[in-house]
Design a protein around this nucleic acid. Structure first.
Lengths: 148, 148
DNA sequence: TAAATATATTTGTTTAAACAAGTATTTTAA
DNA sequence: TTAAAATACTTGTTTAAACAAATATATTTA
């Protein structure tokens, strides 16, 4: 369905405005699909985002600041997201000995296990977008370009 | 800057996965830019979204359900968003006489005035995306396509 | 027409985003 | 070398998303 039907708006000020609205709408749509998957594992999108970053480092630790710089939403409240993951025993946290301001964050064995279970559903996650490889590449190029 | 640099991730499972991540990242990026503008007027993106929809109907009223169906985020909590707009005296709300379950929502004169002020900044809003008209059209087509 | 179902909206709870302000270290620069 | 600035992180508040449940009214159907 075209965006004009999805939000019942026929006129846009410009193709650029329409693309802005479509990008936000589509991101919400994608996140809705992803949420359905992560809900099965009792984690949220933001929590998964952090786990994904931690795994990229594993078994090395990583600081909250570094996690934040790699997140999709640069405003995310990493401090409290980590608190929730700690309660779930998915991560560990300790003061970094070299810099006592910073914290060393690590995945626990339970966290790794969770990620392994999620992996098994990842094929579906990739096929959320009904685009060919070529179209997906083209979409990424346009998105990179529009951020300037 | 390319998405792989923005989030310091070099490898993706597929072009489709990269496009998913890029769409979410770019939507967050756009919303950050929009927020800067709306902050000057002391409203949030979601509140603006509702005002935009109300203006499309003005001077006719519209129900909360109908507003919800037109929003970019289909999960938005319209009931409480309307509460906040009521407190700001930007909208009015009364029980619909034909259907006492529903509410008739209208813009106030103050709400219209606010939208008029915001209008003056809209040229900037449109130029958030650094794309030509043709590229913007192409982006919208790809986004429509990827939702299937 | 009465009971079941559907619709419009509200309310409650947890998670998270946006923003500001605070604390404890570390770095820098006078 | 010590005061100022920067950095890493925490905490508090408001707004909002995600989800479930409740209430009131309207519609359908047996």
């Amino acid at each position: 369905m075209k965006i004009e039907e999805e939000i019942k708006q026929q006129k846009f000020r410009s193709p650029q405005q329409k693309a802005v609205i479509n990008t936000i709408y589509t991101a919400n749509w994608i996140q809705g699909r992803l949420q359905e998957t992560f809900k099965l594992f009792n984690i949220t999108l933001q929590q998964y985002n952090i786990l994904r970053i931690l795994r990229g480092q594993h078994p090395n630790s990583i600081s909250a600041t570094e996690i934040k710089s790699r997140m999709l939403d640069k405003n995310s409240d990493v401090s409290r997201l980590l608190d929730r993951l700690l309660v779930k025993k998915i991560i560990t946290k300790r003061t970094c000995p070299e810099d006592k301001r910073a914290a060393d964050i690590n995945l626990t064995e339970e966290g790794l296990e969770l990620l392994r279970s999620i992996d098994k559903t990842q094929q579906q996650i990739d096929s959320i977008l009904l685009l060919s490889e070529e179209e997906a590449v083209q979409l990424s190029e346009l998105l990179d370009k529009c951020r300037g």
